[in-house]
């Protein structure tokens, strides 16, 4: 009998706690598949964020460490420098990476730390219940911008992939989405490429993934996928922003 689909060995048997329609589960699975296919499960060390993915250590079947809010890149830096032969990745949301952790991520990139950052951008704080994030779109209603984000008071949404692609230390910066099957496949390719570039030691790697938050967006799971296409992608264009050749 031929196995055509199975749970990646790099994921545990634990059931995800994520809300119905949330795409964290897809992204977890893609990372698991990439670690399996690159034979990195025994070699990988992951860093969890503060946010919805705070329990990611329950799901990844490799060594995991929990960070303080926004500090995952600093922790990943120390691990990678002490254990350069390990594959080190952080899994961070937009509140964690682009708000309280903005300093850490920029400096990890500037230093060219040989780590892989999986950055999940769903344009909102999910775990704390739907507050405005740095990535919240202009006009988007959140619990702390109840009449929509206003550039005059709350400023503009952070374009992290474009920002970090400017840094010499960045070796691979890509933005993908997981709102349809084609984009899911492209996301997997991007994660795999980032891990491979980390293995080659070329520098800092990050895949920004546009994700959904049906619960806090107040949309059905299907409408949330459309919202990514119609609202997020026009502001956050997909593609590779930096690819350093060896």
């Amino acid at each position: 009998m031929k196995v055509i689909a199975r749970r990646p060995e790099s994921l545990t048997e634990a059931k995800f706690h994520y809300c119905p329609g949330c795409t964290h589960g897809i992204i977890h699975r893609l990372i698991g598949e990439c670690l399996d296919e690159l034979n990195l499960r025994e070699n990988a060390i992951g860093i969890c964020p503060v946010g919805c993915a705070v329990l990611a250590y329950e799901y990844f079947n490799c060594d995991m460490l929990e960070a303080a809010h926004g500090r995952a890149p600093a922790i990943a830096t120390a691990i990678k420098r002490l254990q350069p032969n390990n594959t080190v990745f952080t899994y961070q949301g937009d509140g964690d990476l682009a708000s309280i952790g903005m300093g850490e991520i920029v400096h990890a990139s500037l230093r060219g730390e040989k780590i892989t950052v999986v950055f999940v951008n769903n344009a909102i704080y999910g775990m704390t219940g739907g507050q405005m994030a740095p990535t919240t779109l202009l006009g988007q209603v959140t619990t702390t911008s109840p009449y929509g984000r206003n550039k005059d008071f709350e400023g503009y949404p952070a374009k992290m992939a474009e920002l970090l692609s400017q840094n010499e230390g960045s070796a691979y910066i890509c933005r993908t989405a997981v709102n349809n099957p084609a984009n899911v496949i492209k996301t997997k390719k991007a994660i795999k490429k980032a891990l491979q570039i980390q293995q080659q030691g070329l520098g800092f790697t990050m895949v920004e993934i546009l994700s959904t938050c049906p619960t806090n967006w107040g949309l059905s799971p299907l409408d949330a996928l459309d919202w990514v296409e119609e609202k997020m992608i026009p502001y956050y264009p997909l593609g590779e922003f930096k690819v350093k050749e060896d």
């Binding site: 509140g95 708000s99 309280i100 704080y125 775990m127 704390t128 219940g129 507050q131 619990t143 702390t144 911008s145 109840p146 009449y147």
Partner: peptide, 18 residues
């Protein structure tokens, strides 16, 4: 800045201001 369990205060403040 949001942090559980304080966040409800900030949400209420944001709504009252806006």
């Amino acid at each position: 800045y949001p942090i559980t369990p304080q966040t409800s205060i900030m949400e209420a403040m944001a709504a009252m201001v806006e």
